[in-house]
């Protein structure tokens, strides 16, 4: 690597990391939390077969898993939010959380259904009611089962926030594009930003391990 390259890295790495920490990561975290809330509601509605809402949830999952995230982002921003004058951050958080919510709803639904019927019965047998069994017996076990797949979704989402650059959100990848278009060092700059994403995801891998140990995932 030439001195010029070193100089570019020194000048661009921190600003990109900063954008990542200040914008990409919060965008992912906020969207993921909202997505999980949506997912839990959708999964509950489907499992309990609540009329009308179940059909609504089915359609929601079908649509959001069946269309590209980029297209969803454009519809939400260009199609809805922009004409109404709604901020693009709100647009991107909405699109991301709806998307991750659709995938996670299926994860959570499957996790709840994976808990053996005998656990319901053990709860009922000591006289617990539906809510007690569901929230105290089933959900904690389902949460444990969900951790690995939900982390998959979260890690995907962290990387997918780069799509927000396409609606001019000044997150990390947008910053990388700006640098690259001013110094034409595409390989260098995009590799740099790749390294930062990799760093973020490595931290998440570690976090997943910690949570799995805490919840004793895989031990029953």
């Amino acid at each position: 690597m030439s001195e010029r390259h070193m100089e570019i890295i020194g000048r661009t790495f921190w600003p990109m990391l900063e954008k990542g920490l200040l914008y990409s990561v919060p965008l992912a975290v906020v969207s993921f939390i909202l997505g999980i809330v949506i997912a839990v509601i959708a999964a509950l509605v489907i499992i309990n077969r609540i009329p009308f809402f179940k059909q609504l949830a089915d359609i929601y999952i079908w649509v959001f898993r069946g269309t590209p995230l980029l297209v969803q982002l454009f519809i939400v921003y260009w199609g809805i939010c922009n004409p109404l004058g709604i901020d693009k951050w709100i647009a991107s958080i909405t699109a991301f959380s709806l998307n991750v919510g659709a995938y996670s709803a299926e994860t959570i639904r499957a996790a709840i259904l994976s808990i053996p019927k005998g656990q319901w019965e053990a709860g009922y047998a000591i006289g617990m009611n539906y809510r007690q069994v569901f929230f105290q017996v089933i959900i904690p076990q389902a949460a444990k089962v969900s951790v690995p797949p939900l982390f998959n979704s979260f890690i995907s989402l962290v990387k997918d926030t780069s799509l927000a650059s396409t609606i001019m959100i000044s997150e990390m990848f947008r910053k990388a594009q700006e640098f690259a278009s001013s110094n034409f060092e595409y390989l260098l700059i995009y590799s740099e930003v790749a390294v930062v994403y990799l760093m973020f995801c490595t931290v998440l891998n570690g976090l997943q391990k910690v949570i799995e140990v805490k919840l004793r995932v895989g031990k029953n």
Partner: peptide, 9 residues
């Protein structure tokens, strides 16, 4: 129960 069904968590 035949298969115990303790609460594993």
């Amino acid at each position: 129960f035949q298969n115990f069904q303790l609460f594993p968590h």
